[in-house]
Write a protein that binds this DNA or RNA. Structure first.
Lengths: 250, 250
DNA sequence: CCATCCACTAGACCATCGATCCGGTCACTC
DNA sequence: GAGTGACCGGATCGATGGTCTAGTGGATGG
């Protein structure tokens, strides 16, 4: 009995796209973590076979790279001329989904090394951190080159911002900031440990061995501590910006 | 013909120990990278079966945790009273393999907030970084809690050093420094990319899209840049140490 | 001197994973 | 309406982490 009714309904061409794959991978990662992302499971969620994924993607690492870069897409770039920035959470995901394409090229006047550069950079870094923390699995994946268009665009913007702030060689500044944010996210995700390990209790149990660690390293306010450390970096950078001669390197 | 000569030589009880496993895992990782560490290969190198490893170790992650912590063992702690420190490469692996056990407890006088605290901390952080870079595979693994005895001991020592330097709440300082070092190692290993990807050329090819990045982000001296960024952190910390009221947090 | 016990070892085996082979099927073009 | 290229999936491969079962040797204690 082979007729239209018995035959399985011909599913309309799904037109699976890279975007849909990345979107679903992001959802899967958010819900179940990086350990449970397999090509089969991802394909299943997309109502397709695992083989199909490999037509759009070469390896599983591709999926991870794409999805990691997609996180950075969530980081909204502030308005084109950084001079006209709203203070505070400038870098966080806002409602305006303006075309970011126009952000670059519009370098602010280089002479305007106003003191507000710190607020701008702070906003940027908070945005990076917030986006990554929104997807804690990213911490496990941060060990691969951030060369996706979204990540690069953000990095480029950071360089521009620093250059505009008066850093003639923004290398070390950008490097420090990026490293600090990445490290912070990894550290926090690691120690908050969704994996059930009670790191706090672990340290408390060994308070006799590591007294200083147990006294100060517990119950820390991640957000405040991040901001405080970022403040160290920024004020150190400000010092080198205004007194660029001090190159203490014993 | 079953005699002593034909029978396979009875191998003298290997007495496989955790130390030997970690040692061999470290060698395997150094030679072939984290991707090629499998329990089977590790067992093979130890002239044993993979099952045997599981008697000493519960999971493969245990091996990674142990080996990662073993890296920190390479970081020599400076002499017990930090006051009597040789300047410079204090934290790097030296020849003296003194008993580190005695390092703790001997807190330097808290009033001696001498300016040399920066050199001390700098040496410590350089030591951390150098040890991790000596084993680049660590970058891929740095996303797990550093709760091994060696890592904890170093962290404890960092806390002590900071406390001795006059930081009443060394939280943020230790947090910032650790994150910075971890992030630096990950970033460097990622972009130096043993995996054959020419990140430099990649950026150069896209210089029109990311001009600032291509102009400043290429050919950077990793060591110098690390030191420069570390300098930012330290001078920022110094400022907060001497003027603890400035808590800029918009 | 010998039975016992436990630290320790190995082979076979299992489920699962990333990835590929091969054989299709749809939509569109010429 | 034949052909083409984008797209799809079942079966399968080799490898991996981990377990089950079945031991084996050396030290211990009587």
């Amino acid at each position: 009995m082979d007729n239209v009714w018995s035959r399985p309904r011909r599913t309309p061409r799904q037109t699976l796209t890279l975007d849909r794959i990345v979107e679903e991978a992001m959802a899967l990662l958010d819900e179940e973590g990086v350990g449970r992302l397999t090509m089969r499971r991802l394909a299943e969620r997309l109502n397709t076979g695992s083989t199909t994924l490999y037509w759009h993607v070469k390896t599983k690492d591709d999926v991870l790279d794409l999805t990691l870069d997609a996180i950075f897409r969530e980081v909204r770039l502030p308005a084109p001329p950084p001079a006209g920035l709203a203070r505070g959470e400038a870098g966080l995901a806002g409602t305006a989904s303006r075309d970011v394409e126009r952000a670059r090229g519009g370098l602010p006047r280089a002479g305007s090394g106003d003191a507000d550069w710190q607020a701008r950079v702070r906003g940027l870094m908070r945005g990076w951190r917030a986006a990554l923390l929104r997807h804690p699995w990213s911490a496990t994946i941060l060990d691969r080159p951030l060369m996706g268009p979204n990540a690069l665009e953000r990095t480029e913007f950071l360089y521009e911002t620093l250059t505009a702030a008066g850093f003639t060689a923004p290398n070390a500044a950008a490097y420090s900031l990026s490293n600090y944010v990445m490290g912070s996210v990894i550290m926090q995700v690691t120690w908050e440990g969704r994996n059930g390990t009670d790191t706090g209790g672990f340290l408390r149990d060994r308070a006799d061995r590591y007294p200083a660690l147990a006294e100060h390293g517990l119950d820390l306010d991640w957000d405040a501590t991040f901001d405080e450390g970022l403040g160290y970096l920024l004020s150190g950078m400000e010092q080198s910006r205004t007194h660029p001669s001090q190159d203490a390197r014993p």
